[in-house]
Amino acid sequence: MSRVAAFVFRRKGGKGWHWTDIVTWVWLVGGLFIMFGPAVWLVGSSLKTPAALAEFPPTILPYVTQKVSVEGFDKPFDLYEVTLDDGSKATLAEVRRIGIVSQMVDPKAPGEIIKVNIAQRTPVREMSFATENYTEPFTHFDFFRYLWNSVFVTVVATLITLVVNSMAAFALSKYEFRGRTAAMLVILATLMVPLSVIMVPLYSIVSALGLFNSLWGVILPTVATPTGVFILRQYMLTIPDELVDAARMDKASEWQIYWRIILPLTAPALAVLAIFSVVWRWNDFLWPLIVLSRKELYTLQVGLSIYSGELNVQWHFILAMTVVTMIPVVLVFIFLQRFITTGIAGTGLK
């Protein structure tokens, strides 16, 4: 045994264990449970039936009590493992329960009612995935509508963000003109004006433009992000001006220089901004909550939060919808996580 322990706890270079090694180990293993555990628990719970969700203590995997239909009765009954008075065991179906006495029948010989103390019975359980949690919201609620709204907002806002911000960044990095510094300062200054500070007047402006209760009212105020202009401009500054001059000598128009020379060379920074924009817009909550008051316009985030307030008891649907809302971001995480983490480490933006 001690040899196994020695093998498991062996360290590189034959050095002994320092207290910091133990802290590291505890921190990382604890982190594994705390960081991933809640999401895993959510996915597991979303596959349980409402009855299983109401149980305490909960089971790790989605178990349900097995049902059996008995001849002569309309609805199926729960199946129990029963210890009878003479010590023999039997599998019986519960017809009804009165106090601590359960009236049961043998599914194979349903003629006779057997009375059993409830302490003597244990339910027969089987694993069952409640996939209807996922399929029913699509028919009961406007879930598809929300999904479509979210996808529309995310895709359109990201495309506009990329075009508008890269154009501005191009102007700010490759042209000398009066007011360039002022424009840059104005853009940076807007970093200081978060949504929570301007939401009241912004709401009146969006209403005045007729964008209240419109997905464009969600999209437009978000597309000119100062961080977007900033990272694109920093990247474009590293592209040599000689390229632009050479293109001009070859009679390329400024627009062609922008989209045929500068944009392709800025692709890595554009990709970073695109990933960020997708995650930002997909996750936006407060502003859509203010602008969208008609149900058919809700984004997933708004619809989910409103339903979780209304249908407090219908956790099985809410959990399943939460999982679906989480999926795109989890995909981004799995495939692009390295890209994002290096992007943040480099720029400190979120």
């Binding site: 996750n283 909550f285 985030q301 989480m326 971001v329 994002i340 979120k350």
Partner: peptide, 8 residues
């Protein structure tokens, strides 16, 4: 968790 939406 940084990528998860606040609602989630």
């Amino acid at each position: 968790p940084v990528l998860l939406s606040p609602v989630v």
